[in-house]
């Protein structure tokens, strides 16, 4: 049984600018993996090269199947839920409509279990999603992604713009989804402390290349990671 997600020698460029110079990484079934790196390192591009929202070369294999030139909608249907940078909420639609969009490809959506992970959503059903607070929008994005019954959840900086307490709450829900539902998670973070606390393994990306990888504990005690991303 191979890994759930396997990238080998993935390269991507925006016009003349190369953003990834051969990234290889794996995510096993049921695992939480975090991807760290400074601004512009290529973290977002790595996620986009999986979800088919940027052109790339190299192999991306999901559960034994090569994704090739698959379109974003095909990758989503194959079981990858990508919560992009900025969350991709439909601001003009209601909370409930956003959730129904999450369940778009699912025949019998499990709204009840979303209810149990995100109980507050019930009271906000008819609120316009754009009027939710940043933390609530991040939670909505998570709930929406979860409704698509993904095998792999990809989160791009879920802590962006959130207060520390709210960030912790978001990661608590992510861990819960991972443990109870067995969803594998690939999470991009600037906030290395929170990300490594939730993850089993991690990778460090620097100018389009993986420079370091290991278990969360190894990374936490690594001097370079400590000085660059943990600040102690």
């Amino acid at each position: 049984m191979g890994a759930l997600l396997e990238l080998s020698d993935v390269r991507a460029r925006y016009g003349q600018v190369a953003a990834l110079h051969g990234v290889s990484l794996t995510v096993e079934e049921g695992e939480v993996v975090s991807l760290l790196g400074a601004n512009g390192a290529g973290k977002t591009t790595t996620l986009r090269s999986v979800s088919g929202t940027v052109r790339r070369t190299g192999d991306v294999v999901l559960a034994g199947k090569r994704l090739g030139r698959a379109s974003p909608e095909a990758v989503a249907r194959a079981g990858v839920a990508h919560v992009p940078e900025g969350r991709g909420i439909f601001a003009e639609l209601t909370v409930w409509e956003n959730l129904r969009m999450g369940a778009y490809t699912v025949r019998r959506p499990d709204f009840a279990s979303v209810q149990s992970y995100f109980p507050w959503l019930q009271d906000r059903r008819n609120q316009q999603a754009g009027t939710l607070s940043g933390g609530e929008q991040q939670m909505l994005a998570l709930a929406r992604a979860f409704l698509s019954r993904p095998r792999l959840l990809m989160l791009d900086e879920p802590s962006l713009g959130l207060a520390p307490l709210v960030t912790r709450e978001v990661f608590r829900v992510v861990s819960e989804l991972n443990q109870k539902e067995g969803v594998a998670v690939l999470v991009v973070e600037q906030n290395a402390a929170v990300a490594l606390a939730a993850a089993q393994r991690g990778y460090v990306l620097e100018t389009g290349e993986i420079v370091l990888s290991g278990t969360a504990d190894e990374l936490k005690s690594n001097d370079a990671v400590r000085s660059a991303y943990l600040g102690y």
Partner: peptide, 24 residues
């Protein structure tokens, strides 16, 4: 309808809709 909702969502934010599996 679900399809009608998807059309509205696709008009508002096509990139996000595609990430939900919508064949825009």
């Amino acid at each position: 309808t679900k399809l009608g909702l998807a059309m509205r969502a696709g008009a508002l934010n096509p990139d996000a809709a595609r990430l939900m599996g919508v064949r825009t």
